[in-house]
Write a protein that binds this DNA or RNA. Structure first.
Lengths: 198, 198, 198, 198
DNA sequence: GATGAATGAGGTTTCATTCAT
DNA sequence: CATGAATGAAACCTCATTCAT
């Protein structure tokens, strides 16, 4: 995690403790986003959902873009924090990977595929760079997981660590879930572990 | 492909031949979406990009939602058509899967992660049902691929065909590309084929 | 009837004979107006109703205002022509008045109260003057009717011919006030109280 | 006055007291309508005339139709209120009728013949029913006036109260035909011939 | 700090008018 | 003559933002 991001990360965490109303607004925002979509994400709607006045939103966020930026960072970091917890708790590679996939699917479900769109609205200039900055941390975590998987003799050693982490990250972004969640997760894991080839 | 979808599919194809201006507007739309994002996707901007008058857009589409709906269907079906072509041409499973992944990555790149968001704006009520309807066709194609892979002795026969197709579909949705494309694709393939486990 | 109006009147009549399509468009216009109201009175709608192309309307009328102006004059003069026929055919005052009222009610029904609004759209600058010009002819006809009623001993001779004609014109809908307010009001009252019959 | 109308009536009156800006917008609307006609009745123009922002209009009215509907009801009820005051104050029939006609003429003047057109724009579906609903109250008032005229020996007792009231309402402009056409015509004639006075 | 009435820039949409066929 | 695809000025309406309370 780059220094700048870390600082921000800590700042967000601290603010969350000292400014419950800011937190409430962020929670309301993701709720409105899920329920009403991007075009239904109006400041007034967020304020109503958070049960505060419209002007109050502007006491905690500079403007709507600032709110969206905070939203993306808030939820993305929260997600990464959970992944970090899973990766850091040690144990069999297989179990940790299963948990990582589970978190992934939950996250995709939470955003309903709107993550990238919101990110772009939040920071139109250099969206990619911004997201890459955050993603970096996630990628490192998965690399650590793969590394430890190799060390434990549970991952094929000839695989490139970096790309394997990326492949795991690339999995399960599809919001089209039409299978029982558990069976689906189990199968994703199976495929990731053993592949589809005979 | 369900009958309704097929009819629509044909209609779109035919229209594409007989209404070049409609086609031009759709192409302009995806271009504006890529370049300016969802909030930059203004009808005026689309018209300028398509080099037609603002009113002309409304000759070919009822309103902005209708345009977005057509956009999603147009590009999604075009994508599925290409996948179908690949799946249908026979040959080694491995090569066909590689091509499917390549198309997938191109498609993700084309939409820059905005697909779901656009779909939701296009049809807020029952977005899921609409997308699932289209996705059905894609899922069937991948199932056919897996089936044939098994028949050719290139896919583990104990895998559930349906879920395996879903897993392939779930791969590479992540718009965060930070690796050389070819290496990335090759690795995705490798992981899918052999898995990560030792 | 002033000279200018007469010329126009004749011109319209002639055109009606030599330009059936112009006539058809005018008929279509009043039909659309009745069915869809002023905001539904679109040139395209009129063209469709007249079963001609949209551009054809512009071959017979300079623009929409010109069409509306022709519409108002066409129907107003047609109405006056019928009144003239009734007044001129002689016979008992009572019968002729009955017919005049009947025509009046038909006319109000035909326009559904939109006459004044259409007139204003047709000639925003000096609507009043324009309408007064046309109304002049009608007023003269009613005055002739009253005069003959008096001559036949069927109308109270002490009534002012001019005001009595205006009162008749004002019945069953006439927004045109063209007399001294107080005298006008007083006379309306007088007529209602004692009637016009001897 | 039907219950629903009464409720609305009271609501409007109350609102007028508690929402001065709403009132100001309505007053501005009728002014713009008089000065610029129906096609000059733009929301922006109304806002400028009322000296408020364009968006403010939409705080008090759902859309332009809603504004027009409120306008029609506001002015129509205000007119009826004045008529009610006149009818209720007792005294000679002749004087009250004179005042009623005066109010009528003022009202026609105020609307410049645009009442029906505005009403149709305000509620295109079932304009007639809506207007008839409001008109009912007015008709009842005039019937009361005629009734009392008869009681005072100032109105010919053989006249039908209902039709006589309708005839008065039809004078100086009323597009509302709500009686059998022939009876209506005959009675108009009767009134005009012999008058209502004993 | 908190609020929400007020604003107007800016988006969507309509429709009178033109002009190449 | 007749047409209707194309246009863009101008209308309606939304909603992020401000500010007096």
């Amino acid at each position: 995690m780059p220094f700048g991001v870390l600082v921000h990360f800590v700042a967000v965490t601290v603010e969350a403790r000292t400014a419950p109303k800011r937190e409430a607004i962020l929670e309301a925002t993701i709720r409105v986003l899920r329920d009403r979509g991007l075009s239904g994400l109006k400041v007034e709607e967020v304020a109503r959902e958070a049960e505060v006045g419209k002007g109050t939103v502007y006491l905690y966020f500079q403007d709507k873009q600032d709110l969206l930026k905070a939203l993306v960072e808030h939820h993305t970091f929260a997600y990464y924090r959970k992944v970090e917890e899973v990766v850091s708790r040690g144990g069999p590679f297989r179990e940790r990977l299963a948990e990582v996939l589970r978190l992934r699917v939950d996250w995709v479900e939470e955003w309903r595929g709107l993550w990238a769109a919101v990110a772009r609205e939040a920071q139109p200039e250099d969206t990619t760079g911004w997201l890459r900055g955050m993603h970096e941390h996630y990628q490192r975590l998965l690399e650590r997981l793969v590394q430890e998987g190799k060390a434990r003799g549970e991952v094929r050693p000839e695989l490139d660590t970096c790309l394997t982490a990326a492949s795991i990250a690339a999995l399960a972004c599809n919001p089209q879930l039409e299978f029982p969640r558990e069976a689906y997760l189990e199968h994703l894991l199976e495929v990731l572990l053993k592949g589809v080839a005979l």
